[in-house]
Design a protein around this nucleic acid. Structure first.
Length: 433
RNA sequence: GGAGGGGUGCUAGAGUGGACGAAUAGGCCGGUCUUGAAAACCGGAGUCCUGGCAACGGGACCGUGGGUUCGAAUCCCACCCCCUCCGCCA
């Protein structure tokens, strides 16, 4: 209902501001269904009012031992009429939300105009990208040679786009998760959350994955659950259908989860290595703020993700997504791209977004101001999230940036306490190639 | 998976098919009293849709969805969730 009201009151403005982003939306159908609902709904309320009065009259008559047959007959007819109208309204509202849930978010005013990723402006760079003193190898070659990454056996037990990590590779992954959670928890003030890795359709709708992107999700065959594509889904939906106290805001969560993505439509892209997997680990930052805080919060959250890269001494740059590259639910997004020397490119390792009230409206996440007037309405919170960071891609960056001429990989200093003091990954030689 | 018991407001917890948007208690907010507080007393409070500048109206909401009825928190059906016991299990 929130969606419907918002849409009805801002219909033309939304349509106009969306511009090409709203190209898929059947605006005329929408307008028609909204009008229909607006026409029938008050009628229905009126009839219900009559029915209520009539029924009260029946009660009074019976109490006074008076005949009520005539009123009962009238009310029966009225009841039938009401049932018809209820069906009409139900169908209209169903159709309405079906259409309305496919409308993307409006870009924030500060989002740069553009059509493709090439139009994304670079905001800043950190670290140096001097070439190595020897030819840089891609991470899959490094990992397979060290026997910490095994794509062949992963294909045997699962399929394409899966990896097995073992030995110090598995330890590196685990060290990164712990390091990131500790950093965000202790230094940055986030509360750690470990949610279910499967959710229901309601949660997926709340954050915007459904109904439009069902083909990107893994679905269970016999139970009504989806595997989460990101911790954003379970963690944002933690407060679905809640009215929060103003004093609770901002709420900041850091959450490790595995993430599952079908990657339908990306055949042939990044087929080698760990870049694009069906399952990967990620530490996600999710925050809820008051509307006036969300712009600052996005900068802050992005900084927290950057802090991980800086601590690991991995070179990166920050780009702002242009209007054409912005995701469905986001109002504004910064991507963090880490330097990969083998390909000589920056690759996305974190995406930090402000969704403003888009998800809050869908998931009904509201708050009430404390000092407000008596009749103050509830307001929608703003939701944000960002990877802090994608763990598999961080392993990629470490393998490639910390590789040595002898094929070993130096462990970044901040991770050593998490790896029993080990400073270098070498081939342990225990597993047959 | 089997058997039984439950889901009511911020919480606990009542609720014979009609006076129930819902008793009562606690908590919360405002006030009186007090140097201040506590206690006591008085008062106030839900969410959503909708009409109206407003005052103030109308409607919906007792896990969810159907059904019976003039009328459902209350009766019937299905589903979901929670608790207890049994089975299975990391």
């Amino acid at each position: 209902m929130y969606e419907l009201k918002h849409l009805r009151q801002n219909f033309d403005q939304i349509r106009e501001q969306l511009g090409p982003r709203g190209a898929d939306v059947p605006w005329d159908d929408l307008r028609k269904v909204i009008a229909e609902r607006q026409e029938v709904s008050p009628k229905l309320d009126g009839l219900r009012h009559e029915l209520k009065k009539g029924s009260e009259q029946v009660a009074r008559l019976k109490r006074d031992k008076q005949p009520a047959d005539q009123v009962v007959a009238e009310m029966k007819a009225l009841g039938d009429r009401i049932k018809e109208l209820e069906e009409t309204v139900r169908v209209a509202e169903e159709r309405l939300s079906e259409l309305a849930l496919r409308i993307p978010n409006l870009p924030h005013a500060t989002v740069p105009a553009g059509r493709t990723p090439e139009d994304n402006p670079e905001l800043r760079r950190w670290g140096t990208t001097d070439p190595l003193s020897f030819p840089a190898k891609p991470h899959w070659e490094i990992g397979e040679a060290l026997r910490i990454l095994d794509f062949e056996r992963a294909a045997k037990i699962a399929g394409a786009r899966f990896a097995v990590m073992s030995g110090l590779g598995a330890q590196l992954e685990r060290a990164l998760v712990n390091f990131m959670l500790d950093l965000h928890g202790t230094q940055h003030g986030y509360r750690e959350v470990l949610p279910p890795f499967m959710v229901n359709a309601g949660a997926m709708t709340g954050t915007g994955q459904l109904p439009k992107f069902e083909e990107d999700l893994f679905v269970l065959r016999d139970d009504p659950y989806y595997l989460i594509p990101t911790a954003e889904v379970p963690v944002t939906n933690l407060h679905r259908e809640e009215i929060l106290d103003e004093a609770m805001l901002p709420i900041r969560y850091a959450s490790y989860t595995a993430c599952f993505r079908r990657e339908a439509g990306s055949y042939g892209k990044d087929t080698r290595g760990l870049i694009r997997q069906h399952q990967f680990n990620k530490v996600e930052l999710v925050t809820f703020t008051k509307p006036e805080q969300s712009a600052d919060e996005l900068e802050r959250l992005t900084g927290h993700a950057e802090a991980v890269l800086q601590a690991l001494k991995l070179p990166y740059r920050v780009v702002a997504l242009c209007t054409g590259d912005l995701g469905f639910a986001a109002a504004k997004t910064y991507d963090l791209e880490v330097w990969l020397p083998a390909q000589g490119v920056y690759r996305e390792i974190s995406s930090c977004s402000n969704f403003e009230a888009f998800q809050a409206r869908r998931a009904s996440i509201r708050f009430k101001r404390a000092g407000g007037k008596k009749d103050a309405k509830t307001e929608f919170v703003h939701t944000l999230n960002g990877s802090g960071l994608a763990v598999g891609r961080t392993v990629v960056a470490i393998l490639e940036n910390y590789q040595q001429v002898d094929g070993s990989v130096v462990v970044p200093e901040v991770l050593r306490p998490y790896m029993g003091g080990i400073g270098r990954i070498v081939d342990e030689g225990k597993i047959k190639k």
